[in-house]
Each structure stands twice: as structure tokens, then as C-alpha cells.
Amino acid sequence: MADKFDDATQKELANFVEAEQAQARLHSSIHMLTSMCWDKCVTGTPSTRFSRSEEGCLANCVDRFLDTSLFMVKKIEEQRAQHGQLS
């Protein structure tokens, strides 16, 4: 086993790994969203280009999914505020 990295290098590598992990999480979300939106928006046999509606659907799909997520959180918080005393 070679010598250990010095403190400054270890810190730099730790920062680098953290940034790469953030990048990996971003990629993983994009893969998940692409898969989901593909199933929802691309219903026909793949052609040489997307139809206007497929393209629009794909572009809207991500925004509406994130809106849905925010909406659900808001609703659950409202319910919690209403029934907070019960639970």
C-alpha cells in the first residue's frame, strides 16, 4: 500500500467525490424521469423524429411530475394541520 495522501489532498478528494456523488444523483433522477416520461409520451412505433405532441409531452412531463410532487406535499401538510390534534 502506498503512502497516504496529505490532509489538503484528502480534503480535495473528498470534495471531488461529493461533487461526483451529487452528479450521480442528478443522472439517476434524469434516467428515472426519462423512463417514466418515455412510457407516458411515446405511445406509437418509434419514427425518424418525434411528433410535435410527443415532443411537447416529454418537455412538459418533467415539470408536471415535479408540480405533482410539490402538490402532494402541500396536501399532506394541509391534512396534517387539520387533523394534527388527532395523531
Binding site: I30, L33, S47
Partner: peptide, 18 residues
């Protein structure tokens, strides 16, 4: 064609997500 369209979808989704 499907391979090309999936890559394109990946790019569209990537752009809107970012």
C-alpha cells in the same frame, strides 16, 4: 429509430429537469 428517439428523449428530459 427507437435508440435515437430514446437518446433524444433523455436530452429533452435532461434539459427540462436542469
Amino acid at each position: 429509430r427507437c435508440l435515437d428517439r430514446y437518446m433524444e428523449a433523455f436530452n429533452i428530459v435532461s434539459r427540462s429537469y436542469i
